[in-house]
Design a binder for these strands. Structure first.
Length: 424
RNA sequence: GGAGAGGUGGCAGAGUGGUAAUGCAGCAGCCUGCUAAGCUGUCAUCCUUCGGGAUGCCCGGGUUCGAAUCCCGGUCUCUCCGCCA
């Protein structure tokens, strides 16, 4: 959520930014925000004055009662009724305009970083980095869902039986490889200084709101209605919300966290070939990194996260590229996002496996996550997160790119974690 | 699931109807050469014509001229009992 003050002071910047996202009716909405904000403030001034008068009267009445001048006190009491009424009216007006203002603010996405280009879809994303060699697998290369069947390591039908489509069952070496990846990722992250946490997989509404999933993206999350809890779509939600409502010390920044969780997504509306196999699931595993930073350091931190993720992909020896998302493809809450994509040789397409974003103060404003700055003022922190990494598509790419006539070779760095060198 | 207690500033902790003590920590200034102390201010949010004003004691209602305090509903934490990995 943008701060009203920021919109008030930087209307042009906001409008330019929203234009890059192709955000409809930006000008009208921003003008409404400014209008409601002005009404809100002037209403508050009027209300404050009424309340001040009535506080004064109350004090006088109290004094009069104390000194036994009951009649005078009762006379004053009558005067308060009028103030009460106008106070009530103004309070209603204030609540009304505040709600309207909030509702609008919830609808406005983050202002993209200066480096983000305008664009409407993934077509406009900019490739900023590419590395690794795409193996030549020949004609007989199989997509991972066929490999999974051939070696009996992932069973989609069994998952469909017990839950539904999009809930795979990992078996044998498949399960072990999955666990190896989780441990490998966590080890990489903790050795880079991220503190490991294990967090709940169900969160309350306030947490969903804090990181921006609610109220808008409600349909993307599984909702346990009996207890009003949401299954997390990403560890970003519980981990970032650890600091909801916190006032942290400047010396404690940056806060760097990592955690493994399953992620649950309803993926309402998805269909077709592109969701085959592991490409899009309702439940998948992911290791996440989260940072809370001072504003002046947040972009350097984002670069650091990108470099960190690069290091992991290099070790896995998978061909990948990095995209800087265009305005239209950048998530609602992010100011700048880099997507990492692996090349799946058998599917002949790029698969998104990580997304690293700087949210600047957008989440912090909702979370009320502040720190005391050097001037001893409370200031909103910047939040960032990135996947390191999302498991299924990494697994898919490993299966596909490492397939040989003898079986699927395990990337060298994973062998100690797996305890075997080949799936055959 | 049952019973009880509780939720007050960054932290600790008073306050049972008259408008949020006090301590610690932090910040600014003053002062003092004795390893740091003392004094003053500041130290939640919003508004402001920069004089101030309003709000704020878990959340939402209510009673009252006036609510941290009384009433109703919710929520969370703790203790005990029950059940249980």
């Amino acid at each position: 959520m943008l701060q009203v003050q920021f919109i008030r002071d930087n209307k042009d910047v906001v409008l330019e930014g929203l234009a890059k996202r192709n955000f409809a009716n930006a000008e009208a909405i921003i003008n409404d925000v400014l209008k409601f904000d002005e009404t809100r403030r002037s209403t508050q001034v009027s209300l404050d004055n009424v309340l001040a008068d009535s506080n004064k009267l109350s004090k006088e009445i109290g004094m009069l009662f104390k000194s036994g001048e009951v009649q005078k006190a009762n006379l004053l009491k009558e005067k308060t009724s009028q103030l009460k009424e106008s106070g009530k009216e103004l309070t209603e007006q204030l609540n009304d305009v505040t709600t309207k203002l909030q509702d609008l603010l919830y609808q406005i996405p983050n202002v993209p970083h200066a480096s983000v280009v305008a664009g409407t879809s993934e077509e406009d994303n900019e490739e900023v980095f590419k590395e690794g060699t795409i193996p030549n697998l020949g004609e007989k290369a199989l997509p991972h869902w066929e490999l999974a069947k051939k070696y009996d390591i992932i069973d989609f039908d069994l998952g469909a039986k017990i839950s539904g489509a999009g809930f795979p069952v990992y078996k044998g070496k498949g399960a072990r490889l999955q666990r190896a990846l989780i441990n490998y990722f966590l080890d990489k992250n903790t050795s880079a200084g991220y503190n490991e946490v294990q967090v709940p997989h169900l969160v309350n509404e306030a947490s969903g709101f804090g990181t921006g999933q609610l109220p808008d993206k409600e349909g993307q999350m599984y909702h346990v209605t009996a207890d009003d809890l949401y299954l997390i779509p990403t560890a970003e939600v519980p981990i970032t919300n650890l600091y909801r409502g916190s006032l942290v010390k400047e010396a404690d920044l940056p806060i760097t966290l990592t955690g493994y969780t399953p992620c649950f997504r309803r993926e309402a509306g998805s269909y077709g070939a592109h969701v085959r196999g592991l490409n899009r699931l309702h439940q998948f595993d992911k290791v996440e990194i989260v940072r809370v930073e001072k504003p002046e350091n947040s972009y350097e931190a984002l670069n650091g996260m990108v470099e960190h993720i690069k290091g992991i992909l290099r070790e896995l020896k998978l061909p990948y590229r990095i995209l800087r998302l265009c305005g239209g493809d950048t998530g609602f809450t992010a100011a700048l996002t880099f997507d990492f994509e692996l090349y799946s040789t058998a599917q002949e397409r790029w698969l998104e496996i990580s997304s690293a974003s700087n949210f600047e103060t957008f989440q912090a404003n909702r979370l009320k996550l502040r720190y005391k700055n050097s001037e001893d003022k409370n200031q909103l922190a910047h939040t960032l997160n990135g996947s390191s990494l999302a498991l299924p598509r990494v697994l898919a790419a490993i299966l596909e790119n490492y397939q040989t006539p003898e079986g699927i070779k395990i990337p060298e760095v994973l062998v100690p974690y797996c305890g075997f060198e080949i799936i055959n």
